[in-house]
């Protein structure tokens, strides 16, 4: 099995490939998908704080809370 880490443990400024998304919420997963956030796609961590982070998905920047960033494994 590949190593997966939580988004909040990733390195700022680095681009990762999304390996798993699990929010336990189908609608949320589908919503993320439409933004271009799905397994196999790149995601870049722009900055992170204790409980949130800012990422680049496709050409947009998003602020994610801890719950959501924990659900995205890279």
């Amino acid at each position: 099995m590949e190593d997966k880490i939580r988004l909040l443990d990733a390195e700022v400024g680095k681009t990762y490939t999304i390996k798993e998304i699990n929010t336990d919420d189908d609608e949320m997963n589908a919503f993320l998908f439409r933004l271009g956030c799905y397994v196999g796609e790149p995601i870049t961590l722009v900055s992170k704080k204790k409980k949130s982070c800012i990422v680049v998905i496709k050409d947009g920047r998003y602020n994610l809370d801890q719950l959501l960033s924990d659900a995205i494994l890279v």
């Binding site: 929010t23 336990d24 919420d25 949130s52 800012i54 998003y62 959501l68 659900a71």
Partner: peptide
């Protein structure tokens, strides 16, 4: 229910 927060900047 998990309340996720995502906001485009």
């Amino acid at each position: 229910r998990k309340s996720f927060f995502i906001m485009e900047l």
